[in-house]
């Protein structure tokens, strides 16, 4: 369904009213402008940490919150209950079916992203074809299993995605104490990205410890970074823009465990030019998705 810009803006206006703009916080008069100033797309979201029973009900909750902050579109990844470290092919399909159901409920607000695992390469390629090549999904990931992403099993999956120019969202963290077994780091992603310069990667969470993650990926141009899923520590986005350029920084939230609010704040509150905020909040993601959206005849 083509995106109706007027409908989106109308929804945003409703969100503004619902958020109580002419409120006791009169000094916030400038804040409402953010809702209309940007076209906000969120690259990283899940249906987990929500209490509703079905994917359709959960995505309704997310869209309600999107409306309140003027978020135009979500890229929705797997996740409904507990984290699965070793998904079976059947679990992979179940997760993707949930995302398809949620995206179908709000086709003008949600695009799906396919869940794949390097534990099951052949089944992952088949799932990519079912959900992306022959289905409505437009992205790969969040790739998150307990097999680090520098493993050669990732290679055929990346080649498959690159052939259709579909970007790949890869989970990464660098935990001070210790990463989970098999958890990927930005170093692992750099190895993978250098093996596949034709593919486009998105470094999930910027490794969490972003001061390290940003510098690890800095000189690998086919890695963009996304800012989701960590505390809204000030200076994050400023450093990312300084080191990577605004063109390689992408907004994501990692809802439902995180909030749209805390993650959007990293961009809204950053002391960077407005033009950089426009790119980070949606422009860069739309640019990365443009080939697959165009191929599918979907709006961007």
């Amino acid at each position: 369904m083509p995106l109706d810009r007027r409908t989106v803006l109308k929804g945003m206006a409703a969100g503004i009213l619902a958020a109580g703009i002419s409120d006791p916080a009169e000094g916030l008069a400038e804040l409402p402008g953010i809702y209309q100033r940007y076209r906000i797309w969120d690259v990283h979201s899940h249906l987990e940490a929500l209490s509703e029973a079905t994917p359709e009900e959960r995505i309704e909750t997310l869209v309600t919150h999107m409306d309140r902050l003027g978020i135009e579109r979500l890229i929705l990844s797997q996740g409904f209950g507990d984290y699965i470290s070793h998904p079976t092919p059947e679990q992979m399909r179940i997760e993707n079916d949930r995302v398809l159901r949620a995206a179908k409920r709000f086709p003008d607000r949600v695009y799906g992203s396919v869940y794949l695992t390097p534990d099951h390469v052949q089944e992952s390629l088949e799932e990519f074809d079912r959900c992306v090549k022959n289905g409505p999904m437009v992205c790969v990931g969040e790739v998150q299993t307990d097999l680090r992403c520098n493993h050669p099993n990732l290679d055929p999956i990346v080649e498959h995605a690159a052939a259709l120019r579909v970007p790949i969202l890869q989970h990464t963290w660098l935990k001070t104490m210790k990463n989970d077994p098999g958890e990927s780091t930005p170093y692992d992603l750099v190895e993978l990205a250098k093996r596949h310069p034709e593919a486009q990667f998105i470094c999930g969470h910027t490794g969490g410890t972003w001061e390290l993650g940003i510098r690890i990926i800095r000189d690998v141009p086919n890695i963009s970074t996304e800012i989701a899923g960590s505390d809204p520590t000030a200076g994050f986005v400023e450093m990312a823009v300084r080191e990577l350029g605004a063109e390689r920084v992408i907004y994501g939230s990692d809802v439902g465990g995180r909030s749209f609010a805390s993650q959007m704040a990293k961009v809204i509150g950053a002391e960077i030019p407005e033009s950089a905020k426009e790119k980070i909040l949606g422009g860069n993601l739309r640019r990365l998705l443009q080939p697959i959206l165009q191929a599918k005849g979907l709006p961007s």
Binding site: P232, A265, G269, A270
Partner: peptide, 10 residues
């Protein structure tokens, strides 16, 4: 330490 807008947007 945190971006102020985090609390505000919440």
């Amino acid at each position: 330490f945190f971006y102020f807008e985090s609390a505000l947007l919440k």
